[in-house]
């Protein structure tokens, strides 16, 4: 994962438990690595771009800004990472099938 991807994942995680956080981060890392080459390349390019902007701007990751962006790929970037984190957080808990 790129630096900005780690920041986004950390910001999205709800759990305070280190083991649970690590498990979700590992899942997201694997899921991003498994993406089709061209989609991973696009996501990586956005990570570098948004990461550069975040470092210049300083402060915490502003996911809402990405969510509200007029640029489709920026919104999809936020949705992708949010989906991966949410799915893993809820599926890694016991009793996910009810």
């Amino acid at each position: 994962m790129f630096w900005f991807e780690r920041q986004v994942v950390a910001a999205l995680l709800h759990s305070r438990d280190d083991l649970a956080r690590s498990a979700v981060e590992a899942y997201v890392d694997g899921a991003l690595a498994a993406l089709p080459d061209h989609i991973r390349a696009g996501v990586a390019a956005e990570s570098v771009l948004f990461g550069g902007w975040a470092r210049l701007r300083g402060g915490p990751v502003d996911l809402e800004r990405l969510d509200r962006s007029r640029i489709g790929p920026a919104r999809q970037y936020a949705r992708l990472l949010r989906s991966l984190v949410l799915f893993a957080e809820h599926e890694l808990e016991p009793g996910a099938a009810g």
């Binding site: 989906s83 009793g95 009810g98």
Partner: peptide, 8 residues
């Protein structure tokens, strides 16, 4: 509709 799908 597992928990993860509901969350998504």
């Amino acid at each position: 509709g597992r928990r993860g799908h509901v969350a998504l």
